[in-house]
Computed example of a mutant assay.
Amino acid sequence: MLHKISIEHILFLDIETVPETRTFQELSPIKQQLWEEKSKYQRKEEFTAEEYYVRAGIWAEFGKIACISVGFFKSREDSRTFRLTTFKGEEEKILKDFSNLLSTHFYKDHHLLCAHNGKEFDFPFIARRMLVHGLSLPPKLNLFGKKPWEVPHLDTLELWKFGDYKHYTSLKLLTNVLGIPSPKDDIDGSEVRDVFYEERNINRIAVYCEKDVIAIAQIILKFRQEKLLEESEIISV
């Protein structure tokens, strides 16, 4: 089935998220209470709500997007390139720029969005944060009323599951199993919050995010039994 999809019609993406404020104390009193209620089942009695707040970035209600990286293939005769770009800065601008990309370049029926665990995390997180900022959902993220086969999303985790709903495989593990260079050669997701708030190094996060996008594209190539990308074919724009 994947072979029937033109690889140039796929927008590969990854997002990095952080807690909405640097510390728990910077939240309003009502938001602190809501976080305490939201997180109590995950943290149980091992952590206080304040201690557990470093993990708040995985919830769209308490987190925000630090960057969105995207990549897409361009082919010319016997050559191909994989073009990468990252949207960073204030979250609202990130979301507007990403929405503009979808509206101008990836808006047709045959266009697809692809991420690892995207259906559970990336796609709904982006959509929720857009609504928080009062932004209109682009058609590729507006799933209201769509039948499952009409949803324009690919998920490399879902593809690897082969219908096994109990199975979770991280991007790092999947690239290792498939013989793809690991994208996790600097930081990992658990360190993004510190790099964002303590180091204030968004460029380091962007590089990490782009490596994930490359890895996702490589996985799709592997599934299609096509040649993996070489470094010379990857262009950052």
Rank of each mutant, 00 (worst) to 15 (best):
E61F: 02
I65Y: 11
I65D: 13
A66T: 14
C67P: 09
I68E: 09
S69L: 14
S69G: 14
S69A: 15
G71P: 00
G71M: 13
G71T: 15
G71I: 14
F73D: 10
F73V: 13
S75A: 12
R76V: 05
S79P: 02
S79T: 13
R80Q: 14
R80T: 11
T81A: 10
R83V: 07
R83F: 04
L84W: 13
T85V: 12
T85D: 11
T85W: 10
T86L: 13
T86I: 14
F87I: 05
G89H: 05
G89C: 02
E90D: 12
E91C: 14
E92L: 11
K93Q: 05
I94M: 06
I94Y: 08
I94E: 08
K96L: 14
K96F: 04
D97H: 01
F98Y: 10
N100K: 08
L101R: 08
L101T: 09
L101C: 08
S103R: 13
S103A: 06
S103E: 11
H105A: 05
Y107N: 07
K108L: 05
K108T: 08
D109T: 08
D109S: 09
H110E: 04
H111N: 13
L113W: 03
H116F: 00
H116L: 07
H116G: 10
G118Q: 06
K119V: 02
K119Y: 03
E120P: 03
D122L: 08
P124F: 01
P124G: 00
I126Y: 09
A127F: 09
L131K: 15
L135Q: 01
P138W: 12
P138Q: 10
P139H: 03
P139A: 01
K140Q: 06
L141M: 06
N142F: 11
F144Y: 11
F144Q: 10
K146Y: 09
K147P: 04
K147S: 08
P148L: 00
W149A: 12
W149D: 13
E150R: 12
P152R: 05
P152E: 02
H153K: 06
D155P: 05
T156H: 04
W160R: 11
K161V: 00
F162N: 00
Y165P: 02
K166H: 07
K166I: 05
H167S: 12
Y168C: 06
S170K: 11
